[in-house]
Design a protein around this nucleic acid. Structure first.
Length: 866
DNA sequence: GACATCACGC
DNA sequence: GACGTACGTGATGTCA
């Protein structure tokens, strides 16, 4: 790549950053916002420009050659505020640690240094970008030199090339000083010609090109007043031009090598960032350094090909009982029910073997069936569930899985995003797999497993072995089984929806007076708020907000709103459910097979994708009908749903140990009614549906760590009233109040919070300096143990249910988990036994301070259930 | 392809 | 003066 020089006006940028950001300081009280903002802009621009050379220029002090010319120069500038003053030296320190040259010269401004350097760079054929907030630099723009001007805040900038300057000012860059000479510059106290502003100055320079030429031809200038003013201020104009002209011929010993980009001095930089508490810069820096220090992976790995059955037999004879292998399967797609196998890599005793599987090679897979099904040969894999489902399609039951690096990495840190093997290797072994070297990959699996397993606390090892690993097998069976979905039912619903949608669409266009794309928030916003002139309630980043919340407020104001809301609802159901689900019915099974992601959520919950079967509509009747398509697989079969009642509140009761909450669940009274009695101070017979609804919202809010603001919005009462409800709640349930205080304190002290089964979630946010981030961390600290405990409980229940069904050799099968609900299919003949078994396994999944209650429903499909 | 907006579930 | 319930996935439009 061609060499590129970036020249930064340190003063200008620091000022800009200082005023753009709130006054931040570290815990020692040192103000840091200017330096912080400088570095933010600096990093962004560096990433964008990727310069090979760099220098930062500073003003030396306030007296320059310009003051000798004109004593009033910059006389209007007051000294920098106290909070900024100290940051100049701080910035110099940071630059020194970054190993970046900075320059300052007695009697000159940063501009002059930049002008001189850019001129010399130009002479040597170097492309230059000048980063500054000072528009004076535009005079330096040329074919070789571009200027990046800060516009607003610290994120908006504009890059000027010669055409850019011409577009904006109508003249060549070098004529900018002529304009300045005429119009002056208030910020530098350069007078110019009074009464001549940017517009007039531009016009004059366009016509006369220079001050000299202008004054020689003064009579040609139109406007008597203007000529008069120009005449009177002739000397001042020339002086102003001189002041505005950047000196490009300072005496500088310039050698381009002095400004080559160099590696920072890491120890100094780390120390500085630490003391300034620039935690995100620190993180980026450490990440970078670690990546550099990463051992290059042994890329040259000898791979032994298993081409004939005899090769495999020989290998299998070598692998003794109790020994272990690592496996890596190549597949064509990320969904095990839609993927085909392309190859198997096997690492044994530090040797790597490969079995290639082309289309029609399924028989080769049978060669290793005995190995895969052996319970005594230990296997280490990454995401064993995926392989298990894929193999089930080939009639192979994977057994003997001793370790799964994906699940291990998940219990180590559930917030880590990157369930892929290479991401885990990078994080835990500092290994960077540069290319897709699968032999190298399989060769690292066991090392990753043992190293990480050795690091995690014993409780997490237990969670992995006793919960997540068995869970993985249960989920594999559920995914492979799938759930029967009737295409014809979905098609019928889709058609009905289509006609409903068309009706709303027609009426919307009539009322709007034009047709447009209703699905486009942008176009819809224009119609509602510009064409129809409705009240603007909320604006987002990109324009008017048209969310349901906003539209509901406008409901009474225009007939169109109701149609839009209905249109939105129906088209959501049609596109996401009725239509998309049909495509996902598997041709071989006639069923829909989701993937339950087991290493996805920060709380320990599962998630469901392709399709997501955890968000099938239920609240609104129109959407609920989608459930009619989820059917039992035969006339003598049933769908059964088993719901935990109030599992999150029961988890909260257990964790907090609150006496009243525990007592309520033990006595079996309705929790929301009870809460209403407590927080509204009324006898139970006064609790009507409205009071119960509000109490329910409060209960909900408590679990989520809601604020008075959010509660007010959800219940429709005033914020003050909502505050009162929360206070009343906390007084009524003092154990919950204590829990909230304790869990946040625990999180601050330990850096994490944990669930019933000691699943951890790290919460660095709790100790953040940013108040918003901290509040966010607080809500997570409150919510995660509750939601995560519920997730733990249902996982335990699922393992028990699956175990029991298999032990009793029942035909009933687990199909889905929807956080607090299990869905099964079963022959009618097993109805009684499965009901008892489910209730038993779920209610006794674990022993809490409160009873767990389960409600069971059955029916021919997921819609008609009782 | 990344991002924002919207809407569905618990 | 804005902004504030947790955890998710997916369809669609917009803009680079």
């Amino acid at each position: 790549m061609a060499d590129k020089f970036i020249l930064i006006d340190g003063n200008s940028l620091l000022y800009r950053a200082f005023y753009a950001l709130p006054l931040l300081h570290n815990s020692a009280g040192v103000y840091t916002n200017g330096v912080y903002g400088f570095l933010t802009m600096f990093n962004r621009v560096l990433a964008e420009i990727q310069p090979t050379h760099i220098a930062v220029a500073f003003d030396k002090d306030r007296s320059t050659f310009r003051n000798e010319l004109y004593s009033e120069y910059k006389a209007n500038r007051s000294a920098p505020p106290e909070e900024l003053g100290g940051q100049f030296q701080l910035l110099r320190d940071v630059l020194a640690a970054l190993n970046i040259e900075y320059l300052e010269m007695q009697g000159y401004e940063a501009d002059d240094i930049i002008g001189t350097l850019s001129k010399k760079a130009e002479e040597q054929g170097l492309k230059t970008v000048i980063l500054t907030g000072d528009g004076d630099a535009l005079q330096l723009v040329s074919e070789q030199v571009e200027v990046l001007l800060t516009k607003k805040g610290i994120s908006e900038m504009e890059l000027y090339d010669p055409q850019g300057v011409k577009d904006k000012w109508g003249v060549e860059p070098e004529k900018m000083v002529e304009i300045k000479g005429l119009m002056g510059d208030a910020s530098d106290n350069i007078p110019g010609v009074p009464g001549v502003g940017p517009k007039t100055a531009m016009k004059l320079v366009q016509e006369f090109t220079s001050l000299e030429n202008l004054y020689e031809n003064l009579p040609q200038v139109k406007g008597k007043k203007l000529v008069e003013k120009l005449e009177q201020n002739r000397e001042q104009a020339f002086l102003s031009r001189q002041l505005a002209t950047i000196n490009r011929d300072m005496e500088l010993d310039f050698s381009i090598e002095d400004y080559v980009m160099r590696e920072p001095h890491y120890p100094e930089l780390l120390e500085l960032y630490r003391s300034l508490e620039f935690n995100n810069f620190l993180k980026i820096l450490q990440e970078k350094e670690r990546e550099k220090g990463m051992a290059p992976l042994k890329q040259e790995i000898e791979v032994l090909f298993l081409e004939r059955e005899e090769d495999v037999t020989a290998l299998l004879e070598e692998i003794k009982q109790g020994e272990s292998v690592a496996l890596y399967f190549q597949s064509s797609y990320h969904h095990p029910m839609w993927a085909s196998l392309q190859g198997v890599f096997l690492e044994y005793s530090e040797r790597v073997y490969q079995l290639k599987l082309e289309a029609g090679d399924d028989y080769k897979l049978q060669w290793i069936k005995a190995l895969l099904e052996s319970a005594v040969i230990k296997k280490y894999l990454h995401n064993a569930k995926f392989i298990q489902v894929l193999l089930l399609r080939h009639g192979i039951e994977l057994r003997g899985v001793a370790g799964d690096t994906m699940l291990l990495a998940y219990v180590d840190d559930p917030a880590f995003e990157g369930d892929e093997l290479d991401a885990c290797l990078k994080k835990h072994l500092q290994l960077n797999i540069a290319e897709n070297n699968l032999a190298a990959l399989v060769n690292t699996i066991r090392e990753l497993y043992f190293q990480l397993e050795g690091q995690i606390p014993a409780e997490l090892r237990e969670l992995l072995q006793e919960v997540e690993m068995p869970m993985s097998e249960v989920l594999a069976r559920m995914e492979f089984c799938g759930v029967k979905v009737e295409r014809s039912t979905l098609a019928r619903i889709s058609e009905e929806l289509a006609s409903g949608i068309a009706g709303h669409e027609e009426r919307i266009f009539e009322l709007a007076g034009s047709s447009f794309n209703i699905n486009s928030p942008k176009q819809l916003g224009k119609v509602l708020f510009e064409d129809l002139g409705l009240r603007v309630i909320k604006k987002g980043k990109t324009g008017y907000s048209t969310g349901a919340e906003v539209l509901e407020e406008l409901y009474q104001e225009h007939e169109i709103i109701a149609h839009i809301l209905n249109y939105r609802q129906l088209s959501k159901i049609k596109s996401t459910y009725a239509d998309a689900l049909q495509e996902l019915i598997h041709p071989e099974t006639g069923r829909v097979h989701t993937i339950f992601k087991q290493a996805q959520t920060a709380t320990g919950r599962l998630s469901s994708v392709e399709p997501n079967l955890q968000n099938i509509p239920i609240r609104m009747e129109e959407g609920r009908r989608i459930r009619q398509a989820f059917v039992a697989p035969g006339p003598d079969w049933l769908i059964m749903a088993a719901d935990y009642s109030q599992i999150d509140l029961r988890s909260l009761a257990h964790i907090s140990g609150d006496e009243r909450l525990i007592e309520t669940f033990k006595s079996g009274v309705d929790i929301h009614t009870r809460t209403a009695v407590e927080i509204f101070h009324v006898p139970v017979e006064w609790v009507d549906s409205e009071l119960r609804r509000r109490a329910k919202a409060v209960n909900f809010g408590i679990i989520y760590g809601i604020s008075d603001f959010g509660l007010a919005r959800d219940t429709g009462v005033s914020r003050k009233e909502a505050r009162k409800y929360i206070d009343n709640y906390l007084n009524s349930y003092p154990g919950v109040k204590k829990y909230m205080e304790d869990i946040v304190e625990f999180g601050r002290r330990h850096g994490y919070v944990e669930t019933l089964l000691k699943r951890r979630r790290y919460l660095p946010e709790l100790n953040a300096r940013n108040k918003m981030v901290q509040a966010f961390g607080r809500r997570m600290a409150l919510n995660t143990p509750v939601q995560g405990t519920s997730a733990d409980i249902i996982k335990l229940a699922m393992i028990k249910v699956d175990e029991e069904i298999r032990k009793r050799r029942l035909q009933a099968r687990l199909l889905l988990q929807v956080h607090d609900e299990l869905l099964l299919e079963l022959p009618r003949t097993e109805l009684e036994e499965v009901s008892g078994l489910l209730r038993d396994c779920m209610e006794n999944a674990c022993s809490l301070k409160v009873p767990l209650e389960v409600s069971l429903k059955t029916g021919p499909n997921w819609y008609e259930m009782e």
